[in-house]
Nucleic acid binder design. Structure first.
Length: 511
RNA sequence: GUGGGCGUAGCUCAAUGGCAGAGCACCUGAUUGUGGUUCAGGCGGUUGAGGGUUCGAGCCCCUUCGUCCACCCCA
């Protein structure tokens, strides 16, 4: 018979084998205990949700990253994170709870992205949500929890980067088209990395009308200025109708093989798009000024205030950040470093106020993000709940595992004892001994392969057992067992009544 | 979405276009009641799949699938 074809795991999905899995569980347990001690209550939520939940949170553009499918005429998705589910559950079931409500969670999440190092399609997150509390104290509590959690795991070296958005609001107030606004938001990081010329080139690829050097002067001819301004004020349909009527009243026919409607659309597009140029120019200038606003908190804040004053922007976001930093300092000194980044927008539009990320050096030296979070005060009402402040964060468990210093990796619980029955008649006694030892909380395995003492001891050695208990005819005849300490190779015949104590001694000595 | 690398034994990998191999692991025995070593032997493959070129393909060409890495983006 030909061997059946092997079935391998799906792409981006990994089997966590014994050691890796045990380590992950240890990390989860330590973080759960950490959060528990800060008053966070556990909550578990479904792995699948209505896709609508995530569309509300992220918007339709991000749905490509979801495991999203229709099933029996319903559109459902695997959760890409747990926070949305927690807030949904809050709206559904917990609105009567006393506030603030502190919740913690852990579980698998799924994202349909191309897998690469430290990035899989299924991974594990643990995190916390703080509902019904806004302001600096709440923000600082979360920042502190996220950092001290790392320290509890033995991670001393990390970098906390806190941001408030100084970009999104600015661009929004400029009145840029949605597509261009999104482009600029997404390219703040590129502006930093590759400079303005790079971003301008990318911008012109999606918006060829943009002239990098264009200033407001040449866009506006003096005549017809009022008419153009008027057209810009109208809705698309109104403007289209107005131009159409205008042309008809002058008895102008469009002499081309294109439809009149198309020509008008094109004309309107031109009239309206031209005004994007000066706005883009202003946006790029502002972004260039924002670019260096990252680094040590006090100094960066001071420079940010100067910029905000120059552009006559509200200072309240910066005030809030300053209060949060002060509140964080009240928690005591952190082991890692703290930075501020005022260009940070986590590519996501649901954040309001503080956002943060934590980076660690991974085992191969490169820096990876191990934690992220922020405040999303509008989210609960978007999900049909009341107007309630909400903030939270999540750690990436697998990434934490790779950032754990070797010294902090927790030792795996080893097998304590292997019991080796020598013949079929010895098994009943062997199982009885195993039960007695397990009552002392020992990890005990009975060798069932029946391949003799030599193989049994070899197996015990390879399994890392501290002791072997040999039970054969001669031992049974006297109500004893042979107890062998694997490391020292010392072996004694021990009465069964003494056996548990003697085994415990050996296991303790193993250290 | 874009660009690379790699698919050969359970694992890590060899093999000028010319008999598909090694190490590790596994199994048996030397040692029938004594485990880190040693020695002797053994099991193990449609070389990811399909097509093409060739007297001959693991190797060259095409297609496809899988996988890893990087970019984009994200935790």
């Amino acid at each position: 018979m030909a061997a059946a074809k092997k079935i391998s795991a799906l792409r981006g999905m990994r089997d966590a084998l014994s050691e890796e899995y045990a380590q992950r569980r240890d990390i989860e347990a330590a973080l759960a205990q950490h959060l528990r001690q800060h008053g966070y209550a556990p909550i578990d939520v479904p792995i699948v949700e209505q896709t609508e939940l995530y569309l509300r949170k992220y918007g339709e553009e991000y749905s490509a990253r979801l495991y999203d499918f229709s099933f029996k005429n319903r559109r459902i998705a695997l959760r890409p994170e747990l926070s949305a589910s927690i807030l949904r559950a809050y709206v559904d079931k917990l609105q009567g709870e006393p506030l603030p409500l502190r919740l913690r969670y852990a579980g698998a999440v799924f994202r349909y992205e191309k897998p690469q190092q430290y990035r899989w399609r299924q991974f594990t997150q643990a995190g916390a949500e703080l509902l019904g509390a806004g302001g600096a104290r709440a923000d600082a509590e979360l920042l502190y929890l996220a950092c001290s959690g790392l320290e509890r795991l033995g991670i001393r070296e990390y970098r906390l980067v806190i941001g408030v958005d100084m970009l999104g609001g600015f661009l929004h107030n400029l009145g840029l088209r949605f597509q261009l606004l999104n482009f600029l938001l997404r390219n703040m990081e590129n502006l930093r990395k590759y400079g303005e010329a790079h971003v301008v080139a990318a911008l012109q690829a999606i918006y060829p009308q943009f002239q990098a050097e264009a200033r407001e002067a040449l866009a506006e001819p003096a005549t017809g200025k009022q008419l153009i301004a008027l057209l810009r004020e109208m809705s698309d349909a109104e403007a289209h109708q107005a131009v159409s009527e205008f042309l008809n009243s002058l008895n102008i026919r469009v002499a081309s093989n294109r439809d009149e409607g198309e020509v008008i659309d094109r004309l309107l597009y031109k009239i309206r798009e031209d005004q994007q140029n000066p706005k883009l120019r202003r946006a790029l200038d502002y972004m260039a000024r924002l670019k260096p606003l990252a680094g040590a908190p006090a100094e960066t804040l001071a420079r940010a205030r100067a910029l905000a004053a120059e552009y006559q922007l509200e200072q309240c976001a910066l005030d809030a950040l300053e209060r949060t930093l002060a509140a964080l300092a009240d928690h005591g000194k952190l082991g890692g470093s703290v930075e501020v980044d005022l260009g940070m927008n986590r590519g996501l539009n649901y954040y309001s106020g503080m956002v943060f990320e934590i980076y660690c050096p991974s085992e191969n030296g490169a820096e990876i993000q191990v934690c992220g979070g922020g405040r999303y005060d509008a989210l609960i009402s978007n999900l049909g709940g009341g107007d309630l402040p909400a903030a939270g964060f999540a750690w990436g468990i697998e990434r934490l595992a790779s950032a754990l210093p070797a010294a902090a990796r927790l030792a795996q619980p080893a097998l304590d004892v292997v019991i080796i029955p020598l013949a079929a008649a010895d098994f009943a006694a062997a199982y009885q001994i195993a039960r007695d030892l397990r009552e002392r909380d020992l990890c005990v395995e009975v060798s069932i392969d029946g391949r003799g003492l030599r193989r049994g001891l070899r197996a015990a050695h390879r399994r890392g057992a501290a002791a072997a208990v040999i039970i054969g005819e001669s031992e049974r005849a006297r109500g004893t067992a042979s107890l062998r300490a694997m490391r020292s190779r010392e072996q004694h015949i021990v009465p069964l009544s003494d056996l548990p104590n003697r085994v415990e001694d050996i296991c303790r000595a193993r250290g």
